[in-house]
Design a protein around this nucleic acid. Structure first.
Lengths: 195, 195
DNA sequence: GTCTATAGGGGGATAGAC
DNA sequence: GTCTATCCCCCTATAGAC
C-alpha cells in the first residue's frame, strides 16, 4: 500500500488524515465516505487517492494515529509510581463521552473488522489497557493489598469489559448514567477485593 | 406507521419479517438493504412497501419480534425456582457466538440508535436481563449467600457489562477466548462475594 | 396485495489534463 | 501532487399498472 512508503510530512496528506480521524470518531468507518473526507479537508479527489490506496487504507492509517494519540493518555493514567489500585480507580474514573462510545473500540462493530489491518490498532489499544490493569492487580496482590488468589488476567478483562460494556449500555438506553452504574459495580468489586 | 395498524397474518408479510430478522442478525441495520430483504424473502418491492412504511419501520418491527423470541430464553435462564447465584452462573455460561456479538445489543452502534423507536426493543431486552440479575443478587444477599452490603443494581450492571463488553473484546481481537476471559472475571467476582 | 419501471442521490474509484 | 470529469453500481423510495 502507498501508505507504507516513505511518507514525508506533506501538508495535504496531514489535512486529509486530520479530517479522517475526525470523521471516524463522529460517524464511524461505514458511514464515512471519501467524499466527506475531501469536503472537510479541502483536498481534492486526486490528492486523496495519490496519498492513500483507498478508503480502507486511509482509515487504517488514521486509526493508527488515533491509537498513538490515546497511548500517552493511557500511560499517564497507569503511571507506575502511583499505587496499583489507584491506577485502576483512575482508569475507571476517566472522563468519557458515554453516548458516543469508546474512541477506538467503537469501531469494533464495523464490517471492516474482518480485515486484520483495520482491526490491529483497536486490538493493540485494548491490549495495552488490559496489560496495565493486569499489572496493577498483580502488584496489588503481591503487596497484599488484595487477596493472594485473585486471577489478574481474568479480573483485568472484567474491568475492561465493564468499561466497554458500559458504553454499550449507555448507548442502548441513550443514558450516560448506565455507564456510571456499570463502573460503580467495578468499584465495588475493587472494594470487596481489598477486604 | 402502517405497522401499527391491525396486521392480519399475511404470509408475505411474515416472509419479509423472517428475512429481515435474519439479515439484521447477519449484517446489522446499515448494511442491510430493502433489496436484500426482497431477494431473500422472494417478495417484491411493492409488497415490502405495502406492509411497511420503510426500512426503519421494517427493522423496528423485526427487532421487536427478535426481542420477543429472546425473552423466553432469558426467562428460562432466570427461572425463580433456581438458587439465585445459580441463575447468574447460568446466564454467564449461556452459549454465545462471541465473534458475531449480542443478537440485540450488537445493533446499539448503528446510526439508527438515535431513533427512539429503533432503540426501544434493545433497551428493553437489556433492562430485563439487568432486572433479573439484580433480583437474583438481592435474593442471594437477603438469604445470606453474599455480603449484606452488596449493591444489587451496580453489580447487576457490572455483570451485564461483562457480557456485552466481552463481545466487544472478542470482536476486536477476533478471538472468542477474550469473551471467556471476561466471563471468568465475572465468575471470580461471584466467588469472592460468596465468601 | 403484488408486480415492474423508474427516480434521484451517493457510494468508491479511475482517467487524464495540468 | 493536485485538479476536474466521469464511471458504474447500489441505495431507498415512489408511481402506476395489474
Amino acid at each position: 500500500m502507498k501508505s507504507d512508503h516513505p511518507k514525508a510530512d506533506h501538508p495535504t496528506r496531514e489535512k486529509i488524515l486530520r479530517a479522517t480521524k475526525d470523521l471516524l470518531w463522529e460517524r464511524g468507518f461505514d458511514a464515512m465516505s471519501p467524499r466527506d473526507v475531501m469536503a472537510r479537508s479541502g483536498a481534492g479527489q486526486g490528492s486523496l487517492y495519490h496519498h492513500f490506496a483507498g478508503k480502507l487504507d486511509l482509515a487504517c492509517v488514521a486509526l493508527a494515529e488515533m491509537a498513538a494519540e490515546e497511548k500517552a493518555s493511557i500511560e499517564s493514567i497507569f503511571a507506575p509510581e502511583k499505587p496499583p489500585l489507584q491506577r485502576i480507580e483512575d482508569y475507571l474514573a476517566r472522563e468519557r463521552d458515554a453516548l458516543r462510545g469508546c474512541r477506538m473500540a467503537r469501531l469494533a462493530n464495523e464490517m471492516a473488522m474482518a480485515e486484520p489491518e483495520f482491526r490491529l490498532s483497536i486490538a493493540d489499544f485494548l491490549q495495552r489497557i488490559e496489560d496495565f490493569l493486569a499489572l496493577a492487580l498483580r502488584e496489588a496482590r503481591r503487596s497484599g493489598a488484595i487477596a493472594a488468589d485473585a486471577d489478574d488476567r481474568a479480573l483485568a478483562a472484567l474491568f475492561l469489559s465493564a468499561v466497554e460494556g458500559g458504553f454499550v449500555l449507555a448507548r442502548a438506553h441513550w443514558d450516560p448514567e448506565r455507564m456510571t452504574r456499570a463502573l460503580d459495580g467495578a468499584r465495588q468489586v475493587l472494594n470487596v477485593l481489598r477486604k
